[in-house]
Write a protein that binds this DNA or RNA. Structure first.
Ligand code: FES
Ligand code: FES
Lengths: 141, 141
DNA sequence: ATAATTCCTATTGACAATATAGGAATTAGG
DNA sequence: CCTAATTCCTATATTGTCAATAGGAATTAT
């Protein structure tokens, strides 16, 4: 079981942003520098985050990214689902069609993976970016 | 997040074995045939399972593998830990030394990964092989 | 002896994750 | 306008891990 760097990077970057509590756009280069995430890779990640509505972008000089103010409570689950390609630990959980082994109906392990998946998502959905940002600010001070 | 085939295969194979409730060795080729798992790959997996004490092997003609009778309650967690290289979703959870980014002490996301990891292991440790085997037998009949 | 089995390691192959690259589109400010 | 700063978007290269194959050694029942 691995959490991909996409998910980790996204969360670290957004945590940093949340800790700033700014209402003006934050330059992505600053974020990359502060977090050590490769700039061009972070661009791709932010691209997805914007498409999914978590971030709002402003282009041009003094532009940057902003946590979408219309979403007062962004959860870690929102973020991870936006950037991770598959959040489900086994493909069979996506749908019956995704099961490659043709034993879907008699499969006894799928239920187990489902329980694991639910447990993970329940943690993810229970933590907000704001709380992470606050904790970050606290530690820095 | 992905569960590797090692973990899945191990569980499917052992579930099949548990459903047989035999006290004589089961031929690994039979298991490979019944489950569709590549034989030589399954050998590697069983090798690990034996080294970790979950399986007992008997070599030579009419040999095979047997669920270790000295372990009355094998859990799914035991199995997955035996075959999976890293069960922790991020390396930082293994130990402070494993964190590559030198921000261990101020890292606020690690706690989140820890909660996820705990949630997963709690599910894994709560399901026994026996229960899976019983369910399998039930479905087959 | 022989054949059937597990034992163990090495190597290859396939694929996804990671990262880099390059230019297009947009916009603030002079 | 013009320029520079920024995000936007896609394509490509690189890397690394997982999955699978291979081959022979050790063991043992008959
Ligand atoms: S193998 Fe697909 S549902 Fe179990
Ligand atoms: S990055 Fe290693 S502890 Fe958070």
């Amino acid at each position: 079981m691995k959490i991909s760097t996409k998910g980790r990077y996204a969360l670290e970057a957004l945590t940093y942003m949340a800790s700033l509590e700014k209402d003006t756009p934050v330059n992505i280069r600053e974020i990359a520098d502060q977090t050590g995430i490769p700039l061009k890779y972070l661009e791709q990640i932010f691209f997805r985050l914007r498409k999914s509505g978590i971030l709002v972008a402003k282009r041009g000089p003094s532009g940057g990214f902003l946590l979408n103010p219309a979403l007062p409570q962004i959860t870690v689950g929102d973020v991870v689902r936006a950037v991770e390609t598959d959040i489900k630990p086994v493909v069979c959980l996506k749908s019956r069609e995704h099961c490659e082994s043709g034993i879907y109906d008699t499969c006894v392990t799928r239920l187990l993976w489902k329980r694991i998946s639910d447990a993970v998502e329940s943690v993810l959905d229970g933590v907000t970016l704001q709380s992470l940002g606050d904790a970050y600010k606290e530690k820095k001070s």
